[in-house]
């Protein structure tokens, strides 16, 4: 008898996605679906799709879903969770959605300690609209609305969401991970699993920021984009757990020592 060691998670729809080659949304979708399956909560899990590249995420999961307006997924999540605390609720958001137009919603959702999980995919650019500057775009990084590179005098520095949210006094699980290489993806899934488990145990708000590639809008081939992410994003956005609900706040735990970005600061 052969044993299936790799199969399509039941929570993931068996359809082709619209994501670009080299984009990591597909990997992150799969990990979320696997965790929903593994925790045995598929029948009571509600997802919330954002406005952004993942706007059609409701087509890719075998779950009930809400499509939120731009940036408001944490408010929609609050509405669902307060109405039906028995449901598992996760919002899936990008960096334009969460860190720009939805900055107020995510801060207050976290601060109220809503027992929901936010999967925050940070690829340092607006993807769906065609490569504009995001609040997370790195200093000097070129985007269609900063053609000579992000000027920190004009646009400020990129927002570190995980660090910012972890300063809130309210207990939470806040972590940052990456999926650009298998070893990182293994860690990312551990963090996602921990985040969903905190919700399942009715403990606290949880958010995992996941660094992602955007070869299309970065304008570099997929293979190079993983290198670019590692070289440029991880030093500015260190990986690790920033906050746990038991009050065990600690410094970021990078998988590798952070290098200073050559064009930052």
């Amino acid at each position: 008898m052969s044993e299936a060691v790799f199969k399509n998670p039941g929570s993931l729809a068996d359809v082709q996605t619209h994501y670009c080659p080299g984009c990591t949304h597909g990997v992150i979708h799969r990990m979320v679906a696997e965790i929903v399956d593994e925790l045995g909560v598929k029948e009571r899990t509600i997802g919330i799709a954002p406005v952004g590249c993942a706007v059609l995420a409701y087509n890719y999961f075998n779950l009930d879903f809400h499509e939120a307006s731009h940036g408001r997924a944490p408010a929609v999540a609050t509405g669902i969770k307060r109405a039906r605390p028995d449901l598992m609720v996760f919002a899936y958001q990008g960096d334009g959605d969460l860190a720009s137009i939805g900055a107020a919603e995510i801060v207050h959702c976290a601060n109220r300690g809503e027992k929901v999980t936010v999967v925050f995919v940070n690829n340092a650019i607006y993807g769906m609209t065609g490569g504009q500057m995001a609040p997370t775009t790195l200093p000097g990084q070129i985007a269609t609305t900063c053609p000579t590179g992000r000027d920190t005098d004009l646009a400020g520095f990129p927002i570190r969401i995980a660090e910012m949210l972890s300063t809130l006094r309210t207990p939470a699980f806040i972590a940052r991970a990456s999926v650009h290489k298998p070893i990182y993806a293994v860690h990312a899934k551990q963090m996602l699993r921990e985040a969903f488990t905190y919700q399942k145990d009715d403990r606290c708000f949880s958010l995992v920021e996941i660094l992602s590639t955007c070869p299309t809008n970065w304008g570099i081939p997929p293979a190079e984009s993983t290198e670019w992410l590692e070289k440029n994003m991880i030093p500015y956005y260190p990986l690790g757990v920033f906050k746990r609900p038991d009050g065990e706040d600690r410094a970021p735990l990078p998988i590798r020592p952070a290098r200073r970005p050559h064009h930052a600061e």
Partner: peptide, 15 residues
């Protein structure tokens, strides 16, 4: 803005 989107979530849950 947030309050009205909370309504969206709750109403979508059938409440």
């Amino acid at each position: 803005v947030s309050a009205s989107n909370m309504l969206y979530g709750a109403a979508g849950s059938g409440e």
